[in-house]
Design a binder for these strands. Structure first.
Lengths: 333, 333
DNA sequence: CTGAAAGCGCTAACAT
DNA sequence: ATGTTAGCGCTTTCAG
């Protein structure tokens, strides 16, 4: 089977501990240069690969961190995954993925004894998940879990500014395109949308699709258009949803950015390359991930740190889909 | 610290082995119903969580499989990731991710003693990667690794039929939109494209972008359009690329599906919802993943199986971006 | 039906 | 500068 430290030691007629020390490049103990080289050579020659399970058992550390998040098949989460993965990797850790979605009921999330967990937007998906005892968790995204370190994003503010932008552009009928969620966020997109609408004295319209992703959104928007005619503006739950909405508009003969102003949410790179390019509220993705990982490793290093919490704002990115800028913003009723 | 089998055993004044047997629900040994229940209760009460590192060490199996693949931030690979993950998960295995990309030079792929590896399109990215001894690998995608089980996709055939469709639709100037690759596939998209063009007696045009994703593709296509004017048809390396190309066309005042016929590759779900909807060559994603996982677990179960190999065809999906169907396909020169 | 003993491959603490 | 001993938490014989 696989070659072990002892195999090497035996061949060299030394202790397997010495081999371990050399292979881990432990500079705090002194080992003769000669031994060092002999070990290194032999290890390479025999094709030694450390057994991480054994090491993990001995050290109580696995050098793995878990990612709990929605499916990377969703535009935005694909980017989040990439960012988180490469940060984790650059720190020498492996990444174990664990889907957190309300479709996945069978989740037993922290089956593996990972050294830490990053949970992204997991609150709105699975609610108050059970926190594993003794494993550091940091939660990223919309909701600040009060029991763990967290990086929250000001979804509410983002939603407000998107809505406000539509209002300022002269829209009077504005609908929020969203989907059914098991949990209602108190400071989420809907809330921000409604509050901006209310402040402007406008009626908040809602287009709620069945769960099932963008395809369902397209159907829902189409249905809505047939029944109520086109609103002036659409504020969408995510960029995926915005693309679906734009498609639905096209199906009914309307052009986004011309007939109807559309704003997405997340600002995925695809939005820049679509036609029309997509106005969107930018998730501070890079920063969020960077800070989150930072928090996590802080806590791994120092478990008794006091709670680390931060909040990051969002920024509206205006592109073609929200139409030409209004000359004057005086069209409120 | 964490509660162990022994903790439970001690509390109940029985052997930790018994506890292990109960907790693993080993029906081959007989254990009194009473003991069984006492153990189960106590385990729950004490919040027992098995230590998988220990178990892995003892059994030589980790119940983890590794995914080597390009970043899920790319449209197509996001879907692949999801499919593979959920299959793996449904079989009771954890998923460790390992990015295989030519940007990531620092890869030490199988650091963890996983029970198996799925490598997706890894050949064209990293070339003949080193196969870990003793760990089952199955490779999915464009290239059939001759040393492992593999599920190959007939990229070449797919590329040919896309190109042929453009030709049949009346295109005479057709360009393949692609990017620089470290390795050249002999039976890949370019090859299929060129061979179809050659057969039709047409000159194959190539638009090669710098590496760096869709944004670079947009630049490259724009540059090309300015210099050479619009081809009649564009056959793109991937759907991401197609979207970028369509954007570049729009930048120069051309409409995909009207002025220029565009076909992508992969058939990601987003293509159905874009405007115009995207014609594409469909990767047999679901089937590929299903068969791949099947192969992998076959081999995990039975290491000495003979090599499992299969090939799957692609299918052209015609939508709006490739324009209206030609009345007659007689426009060859 | 249950327990005792051994060992998976590694690291840590203490010798020498 | 190197070796010895012990143990991480679990599973697997093999005895009782």
């Amino acid at each position: 089977m696989a070659v072990t430290l002892r195999d090497i030691a035996r061949k060299l007629d030394i202790s397997h501990v010495t081999v371990s020390l050399v292979l881990n490049d432990r500079r705090d103990v002194t080992i003769s240069q000669e031994t060092r080289e002999r070990v290194l050579d032999m290890a390479k020659k025999m094709g030694y690969r450390p057994n991480h399970a054994a090491r993990a058992l001995a050290m109580g550390k696995t050098q793995m961190i878990a990612l709990w998040m929605p499916s990377p098949a969703k535009l935005y989460y694909g980017k989040v995954f990439e960012a988180l993965y490469s940060l984790t990797r650059s720190l020498g850790y492996e990444t174990v993925f664990c889907l957190a979605d309300y479709d996945d009921s069978s989740r037993k999330p922290y089956d593996w004894p990972v050294d830490g967990i990053i949970a992204v937007d997991t609150y709105e998906l699975v609610g108050k998940f059970e926190l594993p005892r003794g494993i550091p968790v940091v939660s990223l995204g919309s909701h600040a879990d009060t029991r763990s370190d967290s990086v929250t994003v000001d979804i509410y503010g983002g939603a407000m500014s998107a809505t406000q932008h539509l209002i300022d552009s002269g829209c009077r009928r504005i609908a929020h395109v969203t989907t059914e969620r098991p949990l209602t966020e108190r400071r989420g997109r809907s809330a921000g949308f409604k509050s901006a609408m209310k402040a402007a004295g406008l009626r908040a319209e809602l287009i709620v699709s069945d769960p099932g992703g963008p395809a369902k959104v397209r159907e829902a928007v189409t249905r809505y258009l047939k029944r109520h005619g086109p609103p002036d503006g659409l504020f969408c739950y995510s960029d995926d949803f915005a693309f679906a909405a734009i498609r639905a508009l096209a199906d009914e003969g309307f052009t986004a950015g011309k007939d109807v102003r559309v704003i997405g949410f997340d600002n995925v790179p695809e939005g820049e390359l679509s036609t029309p390019s997509l106005s969107s509220v930018a998730q501070p993705l890079e920063e969020m991930c960077k800070v989150g990982i930072h928090f996590l490793f802080n806590r791994i290093r120092e478990p008794d740190l006091e709670r680390q919490v931060t909040s990051i704002g969002m920024k509206l990115v205006v592109r073609e889909s929200s139409g030409p800028q209004a000359e004057q913003s005086g069209m409120s009723q």
